[in-house]
Computed example of a mutant assay.
Amino acid sequence: MESMGEVLRSMNNSALRQRSRDLEQNLLNHPLVKQLQAEHPELDESRLRLHLSRLYQYVEESRHCANCPGLEKCPNDFQGHYSKLTVETVGGMADLYERKTACNLKIAQDNQDSIRKRIRSFYVDERVLNGGYDEIDIMGKDPRRVSAVNRIFDYIAGAKENGLTSRGIYLQGSFGTGKTFLMCYMLHELAIAGYSGVIVYMPDFIEELKLIMMDNQKLKEMVDTMKNCDLLIFDDIGAENLNPWARDHVLGAILNHRMNRKPTFYTSNYPLDGLEKHLSITSKDGEEIYKGQRLMDRIAPFVDVIPLYGENQRGTVR
């Protein structure tokens, strides 16, 4: 169907003027326009003729949507939107109004985008966050992890129903059992409920701190983000190579701010007593038992420990 504007601009030619009249009549006889008239008998045909361009847009975009090629290839003027016509009576006269309306594909994309914006990751592979989640597969992949998965599901359900508490989770298990995946699933589900979340891969985070320790602004922004998000996950804690400054002035400050305020979550290969020993040893000062205990006082009382059993799922869909 050619552009209405192109036809109208060539009306100085009699043949094209006739073509224009035919196009107008065809448009007014289109089933969608007839349906509009049937639903709104108060709308005079003369008003329709004043809004031929709106009718044309409405019919064309309806045709595009009926043969939708997908959101990325949407041919409508405003991608992911279609023209919706309404009839309103103003000053005693019914008239035709148009507004752009998001289609279901656009609404779904916007919802996913808003969920992603609530989740921020530091040094975690984005594919883990965006890989999609199937609850049946999560539960059924390895029967030995059913108990842990049920407790994660219960935590999510409780947070959705009653809101967040200051209590988090310490998810402990061996390599490749799906700890990171389950925490990302929790973040995703609670982001749908409106909560913001951050997940931090500890080994890379600690190494990065050594590089940015003199960049006060970048360091402050990173730490403030971790302090203030609704849910914070330290992924693979215990695998990092700690130094006293990172442990005492960065990690300690974050945990000190969050305890009794917002929940913090952890995944680790260590049980809690093993993590305490790890946190007591730094690359510079060796073993400092008191400082390890001090940090654990900001972790252990504020988490429920969930052991995760199962086979190493690395290289397979978790």
Rank of each mutant, 00 (worst) to 15 (best):
R54D: 06
V59A: 04
L43Y: 04
D44V: 02
R47Y: 01
L36Q: 08
H64T: 10
A38N: 13
L55E: 02
S53N: 12
P41D: 10
A66Q: 15
L36N: 06
S46A: 09
A38G: 11
D44K: 05
E45F: 01
S53V: 12
L52K: 08
L36T: 10
Q37W: 03
N67M: 11
D44G: 03
L36Y: 06
L36I: 11
H40V: 06
Y56V: 01
Q37G: 04
Y56G: 01
R47N: 07
S62N: 12
L43I: 05
Q57K: 07
R54Y: 09
Y56N: 06
E39D: 15
R63D: 15
L55Q: 00
Y58D: 02
E42V: 07
R63G: 13
S53R: 14
R49S: 07
Q37L: 14
E42N: 08
E45A: 05
E39L: 12
Q37V: 11
H40G: 08
R54I: 02
L48V: 06
P41Q: 11
E45S: 07
E39W: 05
E60C: 09
R63I: 11
E39H: 09
L50C: 09
Y58H: 05
Q57N: 03
L36H: 04
E61N: 05
Q57W: 00
S62D: 07
E45V: 11
H40E: 08
S53A: 14
R49Y: 05
R47F: 01
R47P: 02
E39M: 10
H64L: 14
D44A: 12
A66S: 15
S46F: 08
E39N: 14
L43W: 01
N67K: 15
L43P: 03
C65M: 12
S62M: 04
D44F: 03
Q57M: 07
V59T: 07
N67F: 09
H51G: 01
Y58C: 00
S46L: 05
H64A: 14
D44P: 00
S46C: 00
R47H: 01
L48T: 04
L55H: 00
Y56K: 03
A66M: 14
R49M: 06
E60W: 02
H40K: 10
E45D: 11
N67Y: 11
Q37T: 06
R54N: 05
Q37N: 06
R49F: 00
L43R: 03
P41E: 12
E45Q: 07
L36S: 09
A38V: 09
N67R: 13
S62I: 01
